[in-house]
C-alpha cells in the first residue's frame, strides 16, 4: 500500500451486472508518482474496477476517493477521420468548456503535440497512424487537463515491442513529473517491468497487492517453485482455486 495520502483510493468496491457479481469488495490505491499494474485473467473485473475508479461507472457499494483522474480506454477513443490536431483540439475545447482546465485549447494542443512527439503528424488523420501513435494520441487526450492520476486500460494491446517501448517511455516521463499511473494488463512481464506494485484480481476479488518479488515469495511460501513471474502468478491463482 502507498501510505497515508494516496492519489486515488477505493475501499470495498462492489459491482454487479444483471445479477452477476463483477467486483466483490475490492480495495485499491495508488500514490502520487507511483505506477501500479492491475493484473488478472479475462473477466476478472479489471476494466470494471478502472471504470469505477475513473468515475465512468457507479459502484453498487464502496467508496472511491481521488481528484484529477484521467481515464484512457483500451481501444483508442478517437475520431479516425479527423486529424491528430483536430482530435486534440476537439477534446481540449470540450475539457475547457466543462471547466476541467483554464488553459487555452490551442495552447493545450500544442503542448500535447510536443509531449507526444507527434507535432510532425499533426495534420495526419488518426486512422492513418500506427497503433502505437494512436495510443499516444489517446493518452495525450487523457493528459490534457493535467491529471494527478492516469488510468490506462490495457494500453499496450496490439503494439509491437518497439511501439510498446516508446509508449512506456512516454508514460514514465509523466510519472517522473509526479503523475500516478494505474494500468491493467494481461502481460505479466510488462507489469513486472514497469509497475512498482502489482494488484491482482480474480473473479471480482482482490487476491494480491504487492511487488513482483512479494508475489514470488507468496508462491514459494505455498510450496510451489517460482520460475518467472507469469508462472508464479498462474501457480498463485491455482493455489487459490481460480
Amino acid at each position: 500500500m502507498t501510505g497515508e495520502n494516496p492519489a486515488l483510493a477505493a475501499r470495498g468496491v462492489s459491482k454487479s451486472f444483471d445479477g452477476r457479481s463483477a467486483l466483490k469488495g475490492v480495495d485499491f490505491e495508488v500514490g502520487p508518482g507511483e505506477v501500479v499494474a492491475l493484473i488478472g485473467p479475462n473477466g476478472a473485473g479489471k476494466t470494471t474496477l478502472l471504470s469505477i475508479l475513473a468515475g465512468i461507472a457507479e459502484p453498487d457499494s464502496g467508496e472511491v476517493a481521488g481528484d484529477g483522474v484521467a481515464w484512457v480506454p483500451q481501444q483508442a477513443a478517437l475520431y479516425r477521420r479527423l486529424s491528430v490536431q483536430e482530435n486534440l483540439l476537439l477534446f481540449a475545447r470540450l475539457q475547457h468548456d466543462a471547466g476541467q482546465t483554464d488553459e487555452n485549447p490551442s495552447l493545450m494542443v500544442k503542448r500535447m503535440l510536443d509531449l507526444t512527439g507527434l507535432a510532425e503528424r499533426a495534420a495526419d488523420r488518426v486512422g492513418t497512424l500506427s497503433g502505437g501513435n494512436q495510443q499516444r494520441v489517446n493518452i495525450a487526450i487523457g493528459l490534457m487537463a493535467g491529471p494527478s492520476v492516469l488510468l490506462l486500460d490495457e494500453p499496450s494491446v496490439g503494439l509491437d515491442p518497439a511501439q510498446r517501448e516508446r509508449l512506456w517511455g512516454f508514460v514514465l516521463d509523466l510519472v517522473r513529473e509526479g503523475t500516478a499511473v494505474a494500468f491493467s494488463t494481461h502481460d505479466i512481464q510488462e507489469a513486472e517491468r514497469y509497475a512498482e506494485r502489482i494488484v491482482a484480481v480474480a473473479e471480482g476479488e482482490g487476491i494480491f497487492s504487492g511487488t513482483a518479488d512479494e508475489l514470488r515469495q507468496a508462491v514459494e511460501a505455498g510450496g510451489a517453485r517460482s520460475e518467472d513471474l507469469e508462472t508464479s502468478f498462474l501457480a498463485f491463482l491455482r493455489e487459490r482455486g481460480h
Binding site: 465512468i56 480506454p73 477513443a77 478517437l78 477534446f91 470540450l94 475539457q95 466543462a98 487526450i141
Partner: peptide, 10 residues
C-alpha cells in the same frame, strides 16, 4: 469508442 470518453465528465 468516443462515447464513453465524451460522457466521462465532458
Amino acid at each position: 469508442n468516443a462515447f464513453t470518453r465524451l460522457t466521462a465528465g465532458l
